[in-house]
Computed example of a mutant assay.
Amino acid sequence: MKLEQATEENLSILINGIADRLNLVNRSIMQPEDYHLDNYNDIKFLYDHIESKGQLSVSEIEAFIQELANFRK
């Protein structure tokens, strides 16, 4: 999967992938349309970091969610 290009489709893949990896129950807090394409590289960095980690602690999950909240519209 090529995620290097900043497109709406790739942004959607990143956001949904992060939500899956964080095991979010309330997916409404992470809708792809709530994020600017301008922040694609930052969101991609978070996605890559989350994907590279094994098990995530509760505090790590909370930190990732808080960081993503900074990129919401």
Rank of each mutant, 00 (worst) to 15 (best):
D48S: 12
D38L: 10
G17L: 11
D20K: 12
E9Q: 15
D48E: 15
N10G: 01
D48W: 03
E51S: 14
P32C: 10
D34H: 14
K53Y: 08
A19I: 02
H49I: 12
D20Y: 05
M30C: 13
S28G: 08
L46S: 12
G17T: 03
H36D: 15
N26K: 14
K53R: 15
D34R: 09
R21I: 09
Q5T: 14
L11K: 00
Y47P: 11
R27P: 00
K44N: 10
M30N: 11
L22H: 01
A19T: 03
L24P: 03
S28Y: 12
E8M: 05
H49C: 06
L14P: 00
L24N: 03
K44I: 08
I15K: 01
Y35L: 03
E33A: 13
S52E: 09
H49A: 14
R27D: 07
Y40L: 08
F45I: 12
Y47Q: 05
I13G: 01
I29S: 12
D20C: 08
D48Q: 11
Q31F: 05
F45C: 06
I50Y: 08
G17C: 03
M30V: 02
N26M: 09
Y40Q: 00
N16L: 07
Q5K: 15
E9K: 15
K53C: 15
S12H: 03
A6D: 03
H49L: 15
G17R: 10
I13E: 09
E8S: 14
G17S: 09
A6Y: 05
P32F: 09
Y35P: 06
Y35K: 05
N26P: 07
P32D: 13
R27L: 13
S52V: 06
N26T: 11
Y40M: 09
N10K: 07
L14I: 06
K53H: 13
N39E: 14
E51W: 04
R21C: 03
N41G: 04
N16E: 15
S12P: 01
L11Q: 11
I18R: 02
L37F: 13
R27V: 15
R21F: 02
L46F: 14
Y47V: 12
N26W: 02
T7F: 09
D34C: 12
Y35W: 10
D48T: 14
E51D: 12
S28L: 13
K2P: 15
A6N: 03
I13S: 04
L11N: 00
A19F: 05
E51C: 14
I43P: 01
F45S: 14
I43S: 10
R21L: 10
I15G: 01
Q31A: 08
S12C: 10
M30D: 01
Y35N: 02
V25W: 06
E33M: 08
K44R: 15
N16G: 00
T7K: 08
S28W: 02
N16H: 05
N39L: 05
G17A: 02
P32I: 00
E8P: 01
L46V: 12
D34P: 04
Y40F: 13
L37D: 00
Y35T: 02
I29F: 10
E9A: 10
L3Y: 10
T7M: 05
E8F: 07
L22E: 00
I15Q: 04
N39I: 09
Q5N: 12
Q5G: 07
H36M: 12
K2W: 10
I43A: 04
N10P: 02
Q5A: 14
E9L: 13
E8C: 09
N10S: 00
L3E: 02
